[in-house]
Amino acid sequence: MERKRENQTVFFDNKPKIIGHYSIVGPKEGKGNLRKYFSEIEEKDDFFGQKTYEKAERVMIERALDGAIKSANAKYSDVHLFMAGDLLNQIISSSYAARSFDIPYVGVFGACSTMVEGLALSACLVDGGHFDTIACATSSHFSTAERQFRFPLELGNQRPPTSQWTVTGSGADIISIKGNGPIITCATFGKVTDYGISDVNNMGAAMAPAAMNTLIAHFKDTNTSPKDYDLILSGDLGKLGSEILIDLMEEQGYKLGLNYKDCGQIIYKRNQDVLMGGSGCGCSATVFNSIIMKKLMSGELKKVLFMATGALLSTTSSQQGDTVPGIAHAVVIEGVKK
């Protein structure tokens, strides 16, 4: 059988489908715009009943995976592979969460692009016939990210105006060759792009060039243009980053119109004091697995280009004054036809 690939984009002929999905969020996200769409909201306790925030993040992944499998009406034994990643060093949240499941596990890391990276890789493996059903998940927690990348929580400093708010939440999907659900039709894998931004509090600007590269590669490879999609969804560029992306795309001759949205901008309400918007793996994961999946399932959205961006930095690289490289992966998901 011949596989189709065009430069950076792979096409899936065997229709890998998202048959189950789940999103779980913390208290702040629960008060945001998407309140009624999330599968589960922890209203008060952002420790999720655990002693540390790191353990809380693991619990989120466990609950997300559990919920996703249930929503697919499947059993644990039906899932052949668990693919997950997060922001913490050595992706401990994912790996430790995988410890509690009797499922083979692969850890992936793409910073905040992990959700799409997981969807794209899962679709490849399912479409290739190697696995029937794969679960992929990712998570982030404001407090674990803050203490790893920035400052102690109780330090009395001001957040720089370009900074974003890491989403406390986790999302999981079940991708399978069998069953019903929105179909992943193609995936574009992005290149690491660095335009020399070194301000770690300005992730949007650091990731926007990577987003542009991936979008352009995608449009060229698939011979489409922005208006062919009901929705073009970027992960967590935030307000500044998505404005930059619109500018960059216009320079290249592509006009992103009203069908372009950014997860980071829609998850929180304006008055929640999150500056440029949400960020983190959980941002794209929870937005996609709530409102977007619901609309794909109902057929309200027919064709969605879902692209998540990630900033591939570590605290060591930024302390050494290095710039922030970005990455972006994209998948096209077609809604259930009515």
Partner: peptide
Amino acid sequence: DKIGAFAGAGTIVPITGFSNSITSPAL
């Protein structure tokens, strides 16, 4: 941290900022 987010250098520069910068990582 709430006062600090409001006042910025107003709480960092006085000796209170020094104290906060030791207590916050301790917690």
